[in-house]
Amino acid sequence: MERRTKVELFLLDNLIWLILAGYFLINALVTPRFFTYNNIINIFYHSTILGMLVLGQGLVLMTGHLDLSIESTLAFAPGIAILLTTKWVLGLNPIIAIILTLLIGALVGLFNGYCITRIGINAFLQTLSMLIILRGLVLYLIPLAIYGLDEAYIFFGRARTFGNIPVAVFLMLGIFVLFDFVLKRTPFGRYLLATGGNARASYISGINTNKSIISAFVLAGLLASVAGLLAAGRQNAVNNTMGDGMVLLSFAGAILGGVSVSGGKGTSIGMLGGTLFLGMISNSLTLLGVNVFIVYALQGLLIFVALVLDRVKVKAEELLFRREMLKKLGISMKQD
């Protein structure tokens, strides 16, 4: 293959980072107060919660399923953990609250995964029911919000380290890098993608596909509870509407990041790009004083753009290969 084609293919594969860079440059020039240290930190900070959901959604999408319930898990996991440690059973260590939060998130995912693989419920319907059940429970158990959480519990969502950079940003970057490693270097990651690519063939090849799918749901639940931990920490409260509507954006981020809706394809670093792009858009539009609802509508539009982009990418790839072939053909014809 020619060098030029190779470079073009590489750029296509990392299209989201190209778009991100372009969007960043434009905003740095046009948008007031955008290109400042604090604002850039802010974009990262505000992407952390969504980032966890995007990653969770992406992992599930890779196996060929989807998870609508993550946004409810985001509120449910910290909600129950805090209620348990402060109201129902008094005086438990806040560290236990953190562990409980993660555990509850993982359990929700385990339940989803179990029902989908063992009982054979459609993932859309299974997670839709969980979305409603968990949100309903949260609204009932937490009338408005629980304020005044323990210092240790809000550490990850609130604390800042050197250079005024929030801990949450490092946590997010760390998790994305970790999953990049997991997807590329562990059999587990490979099996996840294989399952999404062709579940039957994977099963026959000796892969425990049910385990792959359940694991993806458990990770999605776990990451949603991490998102809940961060959200609770940032507000210093567990709010009963926390996470409402975010699941749609999680799809947008994952698809923008190059995850295939039909499974089998996706990278963690791509999803990070998708997340940051969503964060940057809402940040720049807010700075420009665009109405909040318009920002919301525009994010919806982005989901659409993401889907179109996915198709365009495939077409562009085909075009590149065709050009390459035509060239080869031209040469071979001359030789004839």
Binding site: L193, A194, G197, N198, S260, G264
Partner: peptide
């Protein structure tokens, strides 16, 4: 349907 995963690479 049962043998290969066409979205993965030849190596994979």
């Amino acid at each position: 349907k049962e043998g290969l995963i066409d979205i993965l690479t030849v190596r994979e």
